[in-house]
Design a protein around this nucleic acid. Structure first.
Lengths: 355, 355
DNA sequence: GCTTGTTACTTTATCGCTACCATTGCCCGA
DNA sequence: TCGGGCAATGGTAGCGATAAAGTAACAAGC
């Protein structure tokens, strides 16, 4: 007979346990456990009986208990600055696809682009003993990562990197993003190319650098004021792109091409240009980055640089899984994906198309 | 002295445990545990000592262990058909915002709109012993929900409901969505209003019903062929909206207003109309649903019905938390939010604005 | 002086599961 | 006949934490 003492726990839930199956079948819990985990030293007959009973009782192993003894939770934590941003949503989807197959669960937190909140979320996930962390970080310092290392939890950074931090990284080559975009604008005949840059993150800095280098390589000028900051990269990114573009429109000479840090900014820029009575791309060509789903449906379909968000998710997942498998710490790995150009009307000059 | 036997577990990880703190301070583990949980029967002096040592050692409670004994994981599972869909992403954000404050974690799974996959994900989350489930279901039957009930795990459905299932629900009133949209089109003078409907889900059916009733109430005709199915509600929704609209354009008389199941479909419809050389809204007014972020930046800014996605998330989270708190099963609650009209150019007729 | 209560702890008994050996037959070769 | 090797199963001891109940020390009340 089971213990007669009923704890609070017993009153509320009463899930099926291995013990119940073992008792019903007159075998030991260990045998049941072995069947569950496909151990080889169980006779087919017993295995069948156990499986049958499991199905009958709709048994589900208590993963929390398993985690306690194995030290592995089969969960991976993901922290992103903004779930609503299509880029991160796609990354999450790519991740989830790979992890599901391997039986891993995905715990997602949003840091709302707030370093302090992100720190808290990291702590939460570490307390939950996730097997690995995947982070698109909003931090300014590398301190949080040290704390993760202390726990010996493997982690993979995505999208945003940190100088001086030897960590696993998966992302697009941002300098190349800037280069490809700028190169494209030059190719279609733009001479005065402006850039609406993003915040102080590796992504924005990399794209800026790629833009600069490409202009220099082609001997093109970068007049003062041609680099404007798009203030927010989040919800209000389109508004900030709009503002930034209006600023650019006041310049003399006016730019004839704009490379925008991301698509929302690009959309805002488009709006400002059209509102000013100018034509895209004839007067000003615009290119964004991120290749969001709706880029093609805009007033003027927006050319963009594709960051392969889903691939980033998949690669990050695979990398994380390999880190979990490998017993000892391996040298951090950096996976840089090549950006792809997606040409649409906003950079499709008729004159050029005919060339 | 600790056990000399080193298990595999000990070799790999070595996180700080209560035991370590207790040993260092010469108190019992329980005392440490009580400090952690702010029990009152601990002297300020001891409390301080424990807290100090916790900080020094960077102690983090093992939530898996806690879960095992308390029977509560402090995790809530969310299953959505598609994480990339802005609606669900916003719901997730709203959820996460509320849950974070209460110290709950969010485990997110995507069912990819596949009922079987969804079933697997539900099983996974139940095995993880999440305290509650929040589901935007892609199921056709209610069987999965019975299985959740068997485990006595509280669950909340969002967005999509099921006839004949007494379950907690949070979502927008879809019939009202259809009514508001149709009413608006009538108000701006449309006479022949078509509808590009969605798949066989409560959302699409509700909106369709609202559309029908409103037309009937106003004594307007619903010529055959005026209701077209937008085949996919996912990735290719815009393409399917485009196709559906082309079909509508072939009709005689041609509709002068279209209510679309969602915004992506609306965007596709817009494209088809403009491509046919017609004007929006002068020739045909278009309204969508979902009020996605980019709706205002389209070729013709798209009017839409706002579903208050973030609010749905927040309400669902609060409902789930209250279900967890309440010991005994309560009567399922249905929370219906009122849709809001967001008027943009696609339904802003000059003639009408002057009226 | 002895009960009664309070404060501040500690002891004990799990939670559900797995790791790590035992153990029990049974067959086989020497 | 016996040791040894397999095949199949079981016993025991935790994992890190909490719940419930116990205990020592001291104060208060009559």
């Amino acid at each position: 007979m089971q213990s007669l003492k009923l704890t609070a726990w017993h009153n509320t839930v009463m899930a099926v346990r291995m013990k119940d199956i073992a008792r019903d079948l007159g075998v030991s819990v260990v045998t049941v456990s072995k069947v569950l985990r496909n151990h080889s030293d169980i006779s087919p007959a017993t295995r069948e009986r156990v499986l049958k009973r499991m199905k009958e009782l709709n048994y589900r192993p208590n993963l929390a208990a398993r985690a306690l003894v194995t030290g592995r939770t089969n969960m991976i934590g993901l922290i992103v600055p903004d779930l609503v941003h299509p880029f991160f949503a796609e990354v999450a989807k790519g991740l989830s696809k790979v992890l599901r197959k391997k039986g891993y669960g995905l715990v997602i937190s949003s840091s709302e682009e707030d370093p302090e909140l992100e720190q808290q979320e990291i702590d939460q996930l570490l307390a939950r003993r996730v097997d690995a962390l995947i982070i698109a970080s909003a931090q300014w310092t590398v301190e949080s990562f040290r704390r993760i290392e202390e726990m010996k939890t493997p982690y993979v950074l995505i999208d945003r990197r940190f100088a001086g931090l030897a960590a696993n990284f998966v992302g697009v080559d941002d300098e190349q993003v800037g280069a490809v975009a700028t190169e494209h604008l030059i190719e279609i005949g733009c001479q005065r190319i402006a850039h609406i840059r993003g915040p102080e993150l590796s992504t924005a800095l990399g794209r800026l650098e790629g833009y600069r280098r490409t202009l220099t390589r082609h001997g093109l000028a970068m007049p003062p004021g041609y680099i404007v900051l798009g203030k927010s990269a989040d919800d209000a990114a389109d508004a900030s792109g709009y503002q930034a573009m209006r600023q650019l429109l006041r310049l003399n000479p006016r730019p004839d091409g704009v490379f925008c840090y991301n698509d929302p900014i690009g959309m805002g820029a488009l709006k400002a240009i059209l509102e000013a009575g100018l034509r895209v791309p004839e007067d000003i060509a615009v290119i964004g980055c991120g290749n969001v789903h709706y880029a093609g449906l805009l007033r003027v379909p927006l050319s963009s640089i594709d960051q392969e968000s889903a691939t980033i998710g998949e690669r990050a997942a695979k990398l994380a899984l390999s880190l979990i498998e490998s017993k000892d710490t391996v040298r951090p790995k950096t996976i840089l994906l090549a950006p792809k150009l997606a040409v649409r009307d906003s950079t499709r000059k008729v004159a050029c198309a005919a060339k």
